[in-house]
Simulated scan of single mutants.
Amino acid sequence: MTRVTELGYIGIEASDLAAWERFAVDLLGLQPGVKDEAGRTLRMDDKTHRMIIVPGPADDLAFSGYACASETDLDALTARLREAGHGVEEGDEALAAARAVERIAVTADPAGNRIELYVGLRDAGTPFHSDVLHSRFQTGTGGAGHTFLMEKAPRQDLLDFYALLGFKVSDYCREEVAPGVMADAVFLHCNGRHHTVGLADMPVEKKMHHFLIEVGDINDVGEGYDRCLDAGTPMEMTLGMHPNDQMFSFYVRTPSGFAIEYGWGGLIIDEDSWTVREYDQLDSWGHRAPAQVAAALSAGA
């Protein structure tokens, strides 16, 4: 079955582009790309960009770009979406140039999230370099990372849409995270990365709860955690690990208010032998809210 191959890039509409560049480059280790009136781009590897920051008041996810292996695959996916009743528009040369791709088509999932299907994300003219990382970001065949989206539409409608792009369910998790508050999530993969899209029914106003970026050295997670703490950047969750994708990570609040999960060691699945599982907890250990940690430390003082 024809499918997308990876999450190639994401776009963020942000009210403070300079704050985003400082946050991403100085604290997380991304490399600056293009800076102009259209916004700013950020590199994670030898591709010309993996994050695109555009000016605007939303402070939320603006678009997600998914790679197709060929123009034939893009045509097949476009036809499949249209046959299922989803509108798809062919992107013009200006949009393709802005995204640094050979060809692009635009659609939206049932929650209204803009989806860009493309062929041929351009390589940058220079090798990737970070001033703070020991390792490199783990992109490769797994793509830029994963998005964890809020279900602003019925779950089955969303699952049906992402299935048209070739996504399959990795697993489910449902946990009462506070009295009367349930976190109900499903995780989807389109390659060996455990999940490229997470969908959750949670009381979060933004379209996206977090975006994951993964490094290749556990020390980069620890040092990134320290950099964020030293800079006074608000933490969403402390160091911890998930039981399903086995990611060791922390969550830090971006200048736009949603979180970045900064992780290491995520599970690579064998798609041919993978069995869907159900979990009753989101975290194996850690990933505590800072207020919870502060209260525990205060009680023990």
Rank of each mutant, 00 (worst) to 15 (best):
T2Q: 10
T5N: 08
E13N: 08
A18D: 12
A18H: 05
A24C: 14
L27D: 11
V34S: 12
K35M: 15
D36R: 11
G39K: 05
M44H: 05
R50N: 14
P55S: 14
A58K: 08
A58E: 07
L61M: 11
C68E: 02
A69R: 08
E71I: 03
A76D: 06
L77P: 00
R82K: 07
R82T: 01
E93R: 15
A94H: 10
A97T: 09
V101E: 04
T107K: 03
P110M: 13
A111N: 10
A111D: 11
G112E: 09
V119S: 04
R122Y: 03
R122E: 12
A124M: 06
T126W: 03
F128C: 04
H129N: 11
V132R: 01
F137T: 04
F137I: 06
A144D: 06
K152H: 11
A153N: 00
L159H: 06
A163Y: 01
D171C: 10
E175A: 12
E175R: 10
E176G: 14
V177M: 09
A178K: 09
A178Q: 08
G180A: 14
A183V: 06
V186C: 14
F187K: 09
H189K: 14
C190K: 02
R193T: 05
H194P: 02
H195R: 04
L199G: 01
A200C: 10
A200D: 03
H209A: 09
H209M: 12
V215T: 07
N219M: 14
V221K: 06
E223N: 13
R227E: 10
C228P: 01
G232R: 10
G232I: 08
T233C: 14
E236N: 13
L239M: 14
G240H: 05
M241D: 01
N244Y: 05
D245L: 13
Q246Y: 11
Y251N: 12
V252D: 05
T254M: 08
P255D: 11
F258Q: 06
A259H: 02
A259Q: 02
Y262K: 04
G266Y: 03
R277K: 13
Q281D: 08
L282V: 00
L282S: 01
H287I: 06
R288Q: 15
A296L: 14
A299S: 01
G300C: 14
